[in-house]
Simulated assay, not measured.
Amino acid sequence: MNTYLVGTLWLVGVSIAALAVVAVMRRWRRDAGPLVDISVLSAVFSLASMVFAIVAAFVFIDVWSGAEEARDATYAEAEAAQLVAWSASRMPESDRAEVVRLSRDYLREVIDQEWPRLGEVGADQHVRGWQLVQDMHDVAARHSDEVEEAPEMVQSLLQARQERLALAGSRIGDATWFALLVGAGLAGLPVFFFPFDRALPQLALTATVASIITLLLFTIQQIEQPFADGRAPVTAYEETLARITPP
């Protein structure tokens, strides 16, 4: 489903639920009077909001940095695949052609097979990609004397691949999500108890607070997995594949 549509549905749904709670509490409080002193309530609201904002900011910065690292990892891996192909230039023609073919097959495997399911499966399931790297290593090892840099280039590709797959499986963790969700609830809870004389200002304030909190949590959830749903482009691999001349 489209990200914009999902986000809008979450914003509208949470806002409607919050407004419903306000309506029920106003009707219940009509005869009960104020539940707490307004100065105490304001202090609690300020403290809870500040603590939640600090926690959410640190988490947001962390997942945003992960998205940037993911994009950098794609270019590092694509560059390593190209260097492997170039390192075979001094090999015998048959082995040079094999290394170039393996490099192209590797990039095509990443683009066509790994990328669509990168955010869903573990690194151990990308079997063919690992096999192609192993095949490159076997050819490079046979010519390590005359082409000393060839094994190093394959090793660089291996490291770049491992980094990309590690980033694809990264999460912020259940404990962090627990802190975010509980913090969001505590930050928004005091809004329901403010003793507004008129309903409209309280409804507007409640909808605004609920929307801001929901938007922040939804954004974190969307960029938590940097490779899911095409958030990191496959451009680096496509450009590199176009530059490597077929054998």
Rank of each mutant, 00 (worst) to 15 (best):
I172Q: 07
M153D: 08
Q221E: 02
A140G: 03
T214L: 02
R171T: 14
W86Q: 11
V12F: 14
Q162I: 13
V99N: 01
R108A: 12
W177M: 05
G7A: 00
R26W: 03
D138S: 14
L189M: 14
T240C: 11
F45Y: 06
L83I: 00
W115K: 00
V209M: 02
D138G: 05
L158S: 15
W130E: 11
G119K: 08
E239K: 15
S103N: 08
L167N: 10
V24T: 13
A88G: 02
V191F: 06
Q82G: 06
R90H: 09
S46D: 10
V154C: 03
R29Y: 11
R128F: 02
S39E: 06
A140I: 01
V40K: 13
A184K: 10
V63S: 08
R128G: 00
Q221R: 09
D95W: 02
L107H: 08
I111L: 13
R29H: 10
I213R: 02
A150V: 08
A160Q: 05
A97H: 07
S46G: 11
V234H: 06
Q159L: 14
S87A: 14
P233A: 12
P92H: 06
E109Y: 15
T219A: 11
G173S: 09
V121W: 09
M153W: 04
R71N: 12
V40D: 06
T208F: 14
S46W: 04
L19G: 11
F193I: 08
L205G: 01
A56L: 09
E109R: 09
L158E: 13
T235A: 13
A18K: 06
I61N: 09
A80W: 01
Y237A: 13
L47V: 15
D105T: 14
A20G: 15
Q202H: 04
D174M: 10
D138Y: 12
A56F: 11
T219E: 07
D229Y: 11
V36T: 14
A81T: 09
A204N: 02
V234W: 05
Q113P: 00
W86H: 06
E239G: 03
S211L: 04
S87I: 03
W64K: 04
R90Q: 12
H143M: 05
V110K: 03
R101C: 08
L180I: 11
Q125N: 00
L102F: 01
V84Q: 03
A23G: 13
F218E: 08
F194Y: 15
V40E: 04
A18C: 13
T208E: 05
A97P: 04
T219N: 11
D62E: 11
V14D: 02
R90L: 12
T245C: 01
W130L: 06
V21P: 04
E163R: 09
L165V: 12
V121Q: 14
W10C: 03
D95R: 05
A88V: 01
L180H: 06
P247T: 07
D138L: 14
A56Q: 05
E69P: 02
E68T: 15
Q222P: 00
W177R: 07
T3H: 06
A168F: 07
E109F: 09
A228W: 01
H137M: 13
T176F: 07
V209E: 01
E77G: 10
R104W: 02
T208H: 08
L102W: 01
P92K: 06
